[in-house]
Amino acid sequence: MPVNIIVTAKQVIDPETPASSLRLNAQTKRMETPPNVPPVINGFDENAVEAALRIKDAQGGKVTVISVGKAFVTDVVKKPLSMGCDELVLIQDDAADTFDGYATAQVLAAAIKKIGTYDLVICGRQASDFDQAYVPLGIAELLGIPCVTIGQKVDVKDKNVTVGRAFADSTEVVESPMPALVTVSNELGQPRYPSLRGIMAAGRKQPISWKLADLGLNAAQLEAKVEMLELFIPAREKKCEIIDGENEEDKGRKLALKLREAKLI
């Protein structure tokens, strides 16, 4: 049975940016990377794309990706298309950067309603900028569909989805009727790399652009319920004692002596 899947994907700053080159912008209350570091698709959203494509590979169907943002970088947001997704919906709004999770969930839920036919919504477990793990739960509530989080395996059978969930020390398998929303985690496995054919096809594909008004939404409905007051980096008073030695073996030996002296081992 072909499965209609919607994946949500957020463009975020690259979380692999070394701490030393991250800058805090107190004005915008955002962390910034140097201008030469491009943004990325949130890592867990790439896992979501992978989960969707695995289902499509096995059973056929269609994968539509939706992203809400202020300034999309075309090559970045098109990555899911080059991985094999069928359609990309971009919802650009100048205020999108200041949306709280409640507003973002409303926009995404409205977009999903506008798309209309879907069996499954797959989201990343959390966005690596604010680490909220919040928007997908809101989408599910607003659409009134069941929701299963932190999936490491997603399988569709008939009208049901089964999700293997990964916790720190346990796993469980949950079954839900569709339509349903599932969030996935990195335990799902490495997302596929775009193929050359995929990249060419994505290059030719035109994203669908919607504005808030196309979704029947206005600014008043999207007023933040949670307001960011301040972004700061707590002061850390740590001094590292570098263990020196004649060579690396000697340093290893001296480390052991040091730790014994400090009664740590």
């Binding site: 701490a19 991250l22 805090l24 962390m31 690596s128 900028d129 604010f130 972004l231």
Partner: peptide, 8 residues
């Protein structure tokens, strides 16, 4: 937030 790189 930001993986612990800052606090909000």
């Amino acid at each position: 937030v930001y993986g612990g790189a800052s606090m909000a």
